[in-house]
Design a protein around this nucleic acid. Structure first.
Length: 266
DNA sequence: ATGACCAGCTTGGCTGGA
């Protein structure tokens, strides 16, 4: 089975690219982030015509996540239990979608950006990650969960775990994505038993998954590695390879992120 | 060549992205 995650940065602007990617790559399950549309605006028909089922959650032009699958798509959840909201009167945003596809519990995740270290979005980001970690830990724990569960936590984590995950760490002093608290919140998933399999299989430095549209960041390979796949122990044991599809960043009309593809044994 | 922001909505200048 081939599972991929991709921050598409508007599904309506890039639906054709997404379908072409599915067909070219032979991806069975694709988790999308930043679909940037309401559920009724999602171009479901294009995917259904290609043989995929579609689940989405989108409340506005912001955020939005989806899962498309040709190996089944069941037990959809449009938020994780306890998912924090944002704002004075907290509103749960369209940032997490769970579905069971081919026996794997897939979560398409768009972690809050954080904006600036002194912005309310930053503590929101940290609590969002912490609540997700608590839930994800319970899913695979003895007693509360199932240690043999196959769970994939995939998406745009908006955290660069290592200094080498950004092209110039000096430029990130005092910025989000690289702060110790964000990195600790990211590492806590590993402490909970999940394995971030993309780095295991693609450890090379200067492997990025995002490049800003500005300032020739892509031709210069000045990017960030912020899209990851955390796998539960039972799922991690099935991973045979990972591909960062950087060709998808080329050409007119590309997303600023590229797909990260994970291959699983049957 | 991989090339000098992009998307959506309020359609024109915001917000959000990272």
């Amino acid at each position: 089975m081939r599972l991929a995650t991709w921050n598409i940065n508007s599904i309506r602007a890039r639906a054709d690219r997404a379908v072409a990617f599915l067909e070219r790559s032979g991806t069975d399950v694709l988790a999308l982030q930043e679909t940037k549309c309401k559920d009724d605006q999602f171009p479901r028909g294009l995917f259904e015509d290609a043989g995929y089922e579609v689940a989405t959650v989108g409340f506005s032009q912001w955020n939005g996540v989806a899962i498309v699958s040709r190996v089944g798509l069941e037990d959809v959840e449009t938020a994780f239990p306890g998912q924090p909201g944002f704002g004075e009167e907290p509103v749960v945003e369209a940032r997490a979608l769970g579905a069971t596809c081919g026996g794997v519990r897939v979560w398409s995740l768009y972690v809050p950006n954080g904006r600036e270290l002194d912005n309310p979005h930053y503590p929101y980001k940290l609590s969002w990650l912490e609540e997700l970690r608590a839930q994800a830990a319970s899913w695979i724990a003895e007693g509360s969960g199932d240690p043999t569960a196959q769970v994939a936590l995939v998406g745009d984590w908006n955290v660069a775990p290592l200094d080498t995950d950004v092209w110039d760490i000096g430029l990130f002093a005092g910025k989000t994505h690289v702060s110790p608290a964000e990195r600790a919140a990211f590492a806590a998933f590993a402490e909970a038993g999940y394995a971030e399999v993309s780095r295991t299989f693609v450890p090379a430095e200067r492997t990025y998954t995002y490049w800003d549209y500005q300032q020739l960041r892509f031709p210069r390979n000045e990017g960030m590695r912020i899209d990851f796949t955390y796998a539960s122990p039972a799922l991690a044991a099935r991973v045979t390879g990972v591909t960062v599809d950087r060709n998808e960043r080329k050409g007119k009309g590309a997303s600023d992120h590229v797909p990260v593809i994970v291959d699983l044994t049957d």
